[in-house]
Simulated scan of single mutants.
Amino acid sequence: MADPKPLAGKVILMTGAAQGIGATISNYIAARGASLSLADVQKEKLDAEAQYLAQTYPDIRVFTWSLDVTDPKAVEEWVIESKAKFGRIDGCVNNAGILGDGSQITDMSFDNWSRVINVNLTGVFNCLKVQLRAIEDGGSIVNMSSCAGIYGLHILPAYSASKHGVIGLSKVAAAEHAHRGIRVNAVCPGLVEGGMLKDVQKELPGLTTNDLQVLFKELVPIGEIAAMVGYLLGNESKFITRTVLSVDGGFS
């Protein structure tokens, strides 16, 4: 019989936890027994999510931190404070990311390029730099990439480049820390119903939901992403590392 709480006793850190995929992941892993340190720039939404989790799963502990992942000192402080509060770190989910403005390479501003790369790629680097030192031997780190990080999305060059970079960084981190039994994997969602879908429609107002469904074949159920991340954080996936896992209905 499967363990209903396979993450019981584990402490998981996650960025981008206030809404969308992040909130769904936090709910999924909380239900499976993990205590959480949740970070996001959206403090009010984050606190509301933490309150919901604490009320719904009274057997876990939830800690929140207002965080801009582009600030390396702030990231270091969050990780150090999280470990001090819980006494250990067993897993991390680096989920913070932005879409950026939709444009072709020739039309993209340097400011837009820099903003997306700084959040999506440098932000993951800032997190890994501290997390890899602080995490327990045998721990697991999941970095959120995208199907755009595999095939490239022609209308989002900065986003696609940043998510390709997350995959490369994940593979390097996995190789560097394999001797400690630390696993690092990248998860690549397709277009998910929720916040990112709204962002795509905002930046590309000519595309309707139906257009996007034709482009991406089908929208990915958000729970599928959470289930994959939860699996990678648990003991059942101890032989999976340095891997890129697509959760996109076969699109990529």
Score class of each variant (00 low, 15 high):
M1H: 14
M1F: 07
A2Q: 15
P6L: 13
L7H: 10
G9N: 05
L13Y: 10
L13K: 15
G16K: 02
A17N: 00
A18K: 07
Q19E: 12
I21M: 15
I21H: 10
G22K: 08
T24I: 00
I25T: 08
N27K: 13
Y28A: 14
A30T: 05
S37I: 00
S37F: 03
L38I: 07
D40R: 04
V41N: 14
V41E: 08
V41S: 10
Q42M: 03
K45G: 06
K45R: 13
A48P: 03
E49I: 01
E49N: 01
A50Q: 01
Y52T: 09
A54I: 09
T56M: 01
V62L: 14
V62R: 02
F63P: 01
F63V: 05
F63L: 14
T64K: 01
T64A: 07
T64N: 13
L67D: 11
V69H: 02
D71F: 11
K73V: 11
K83Y: 06
K85V: 06
K85A: 14
K85S: 06
C92M: 13
N94A: 02
N95Q: 08
N95K: 03
L99Y: 02
L99D: 04
G100S: 12
G102K: 09
D111E: 15
N118F: 10
N120K: 05
T122N: 15
G123E: 09
G123T: 05
F125H: 13
N126W: 04
N126V: 09
L128Y: 00
Q131E: 12
A134V: 06
I135S: 05
D137M: 08
D137V: 04
G138D: 05
G138R: 00
G139P: 01
V142D: 01
M144S: 04
C147R: 10
G149T: 00
Y151K: 12
G152Y: 07
G152M: 10
I155R: 14
I155E: 15
A158G: 01
S160D: 02
S162F: 10
H164W: 09
L169E: 14
S170G: 15
K171P: 05
V172L: 15
V172Y: 12
A173Q: 13
A174N: 04
A175R: 10
A175K: 11
A178I: 11
H179V: 13
H179T: 12
V184L: 15
V184M: 15
N185W: 09
A186Y: 15
C188A: 12
C188Q: 06
P189S: 15
P189D: 11
L191A: 08
M196R: 05
L197K: 09
K202Q: 13
L204Q: 08
P205Y: 09
N210F: 03
L212F: 09
L212R: 03
V214C: 07
L215E: 12
F216G: 08
F216E: 07
K217P: 01
K217G: 07
I222Q: 00
I222K: 10
G223Q: 02
I225D: 09
A227C: 09
S237L: 04
T241F: 10
R242T: 13
V244R: 00
L245Y: 11
